[in-house]
Amino acid sequence: MDMASTFIKPMHPEGRKFVAIFAVIALILFVIWEPLGWLGVLMTVWCYYFFRDPERVTPDRTDLVISPADGVISLIEPAVPPAELGMADTPLTRVSVFMNVFNCHVNRAPVGGTVQAIAYRPGKFFNASLDKASVDNERNSVRITMADGRDIAVVQIAGLVARRIVCFTKPNEVLAPGERFGLIRFGSRLDVYLPEGVEPMVAIGQTMVAGETVIADLKA
């Protein structure tokens, strides 16, 4: 790996129009006052960095649950999966990964399996690190059925700054572990509902890397 690839990462296509907008604003600011123009350049670089989409090396074991997002574990608690997914109302262990505005926001499948349901629900925009964000905030829920018949729910939750949830996958599509399935713009959170009886292998405050960090072992 050379020095350039260490600092310059590929950008997700979703970010191209935003970087273009920031760049145009930077040019206008240069015309108004040069110091403002350089501030615009910095914001343009940040926007590019926000939409970066680096390659990840996902563990090749199919019995692992992988983090769907970069960020920090903010909550681990029992909770009922979103009702719109049609899962049982039995509380499951919910692991929440909070993403700040400096994290990579491309979301990846926590397990391999078939997408059984996708359900979008509009809502509010509380700080995504708060517990009530899972219930009150705008969200997009995905139910994935694994080869052994068990289900995992992964929920994209908009945050205080985020105003757009993007989901790339569709019902009946087969996802591989670590495969890109969505993106949330500008600060947000991902919730993973583990199958009944599965315990997490992570702790609150732990840093996650999407597509790489193991959240749980389905065989443990």
Rank of each mutant, 00 (worst) to 15 (best):
A210W: 01
A210N: 05
F22Y: 14
A216V: 08
V111T: 10
V45N: 02
T62V: 09
V72P: 00
R139Q: 14
S134C: 11
L39N: 04
L36P: 04
R52H: 01
N107P: 03
C47L: 07
R180I: 08
R180K: 06
R143H: 10
D63N: 10
V198K: 03
A158S: 12
I184A: 04
Y193L: 09
I66M: 06
A176V: 03
Q116I: 06
I73W: 01
F126Y: 15
E173S: 09
G112M: 04
V155W: 02
V111R: 07
M201V: 03
E34L: 14
V97N: 03
Q156N: 03
D131E: 14
F18I: 08
I157R: 02
T213E: 00
D53F: 12
F126Q: 05
M11S: 03
A147E: 14
I204A: 06
D70G: 05
S129C: 06
P35Q: 10
K124S: 11
P10L: 08
S141A: 15
L85A: 09
I25M: 11
G187H: 04
A23L: 15
W33L: 07
L27C: 15
G211D: 12
C47Y: 01
T207H: 08
R185Y: 02
A109E: 12
A216W: 03
G205Q: 10
V95P: 00
R180D: 00
I25A: 12
L190T: 04
V31M: 13
P171F: 05
V154M: 06
M3K: 02
V31I: 15
T44P: 12
E77W: 03
V106W: 03
D136K: 15
V209D: 01
S134A: 15
A158M: 06
D89Q: 15
N137V: 00
F7L: 08
A158I: 04
D60C: 05
R108A: 09
E196A: 11
A133R: 11
A216C: 03
L183W: 13
D53G: 10
Q156G: 07
M11P: 01
I204W: 01
G197P: 02
D217T: 07
D63I: 01
D53R: 08
E173T: 12
I144P: 04
P177L: 04
D151T: 10
K170H: 11
I25L: 15
G113R: 04
L64H: 00
V65C: 10
P177K: 02
S134H: 14
A128V: 08
P177V: 06
V115P: 05
A117K: 14
I184W: 04
G37Q: 13
V41K: 08
D131L: 09
F102M: 10
R94D: 09
V57K: 05
F102D: 00
S129Y: 04
F22A: 15
T213W: 01
A79K: 13
I184S: 02
T62R: 14
R189C: 00
L194C: 11
F181W: 08
G113E: 03
L130D: 15
W38Q: 01
A153L: 13
R139F: 13
M43R: 00
D217A: 12
A162P: 00
N103L: 07
A210Q: 04
A210K: 00
P59F: 06
D136E: 15
C47K: 05
W38K: 01
G71P: 10
A162Q: 02
M146D: 02
A147F: 07
V80P: 12
F125M: 09
M208C: 07
L42T: 12
L39K: 05
E196W: 01
L36M: 11
D63V: 09
